[in-house]
Amino acid sequence: MFLGPYTVLILIVFVASMAIQAYLSSTYRKWGQVRNPRSMTGADVARLMLDENGLGHIPVQAVPGNLTDHYDPIRKTVNLSESVYGVPSVGAMAVAAHEVGHAIQDKVHMPALVLRGQMAVPLNLGMNLAPLLLLAGIFLHISGLLWLGAILFGFALLFHLVTLPVEFDASRRALNYLQQRGLSGGGEGGNGARAVLTAAALTYVAGFAMALAQFLNILGIARSSDD
């Protein structure tokens, strides 16, 4: 985004992120076409998992788009994309269980999830301001603005770092539930669910790597301004 000592690293991470996103799409496309052993749609799996974890009051809703699935901690809803909600595939089953994993985290007040929620609003405001501070610092030669922008990007890095255990834990809960209830059926079904969730996890790792590369780059620019 800004030329600095780590610009090449940013480009490398960007290319890697695009490759990981393509891998996720390819993996889900494959397992999104394989029927799961119980012929349960993503909505069926989510409803069953919610009910069996004392979350019967949380609705499961369909939302437009592809892989736009998410749990809304404000409205307390599990939102499944069109390729998950009504599809009885291995991929849909895995994604739906993952989103319910977030609902369970919310129920037990997982510290990392709570922290991420508290960081979201101020971080969005800060990230809208950070590029302006960096540009002003560069063109006006005011190192203080550069350092303030670097600090805001540091918070973004922290947000991505906190996100990792939240996402990994949701996938762990999903896989454990599917295996314990025999929904994945073991064998191909179990391997497929794991493959989909692993591919999704890699996108969050890539997000953290990009945030780290950007932070190091901006830190380098700020340091050079002091010389």
Rank of each mutant, 00 (worst) to 15 (best):
E99A: 10
G207E: 06
V100R: 08
S81V: 07
N79S: 13
S224Y: 10
P73S: 11
G207F: 00
A43C: 10
Q33E: 11
G42D: 02
L135C: 10
A199S: 01
R47P: 05
I218S: 03
G192I: 05
M40E: 00
V121K: 12
A200L: 01
W31N: 03
H98Y: 07
I104M: 11
L145Q: 05
H160A: 15
L3M: 15
A193Y: 05
V34Y: 04
L125Y: 10
A213Q: 01
A211V: 04
Q21H: 13
G56C: 04
K76I: 04
Q61W: 14
K30Y: 10
Q105E: 12
I221K: 06
I221M: 02
M127R: 08
L24Y: 06
Q179L: 13
N79I: 07
G137T: 00
P111W: 03
T41N: 08
M93G: 08
Y28N: 07
L183D: 03
P122G: 00
M1Y: 15
R29W: 13
L125E: 14
S171I: 07
R223S: 04
H102D: 06
T41Q: 01
S225A: 10
V162L: 12
L219Q: 07
F208K: 07
L152D: 01
G42Y: 03
L67Q: 03
I221S: 11
L133G: 01
L164K: 08
L161S: 10
M127P: 06
A136F: 04
G91R: 01
L152K: 09
A92P: 01
V196S: 06
T27G: 07
L132W: 08
V114A: 06
A62C: 14
L145A: 07
Q118A: 09
P88Y: 01
T203M: 06
G190E: 02
A195H: 05
P64Q: 12
E99K: 05
L132A: 09
A96L: 13
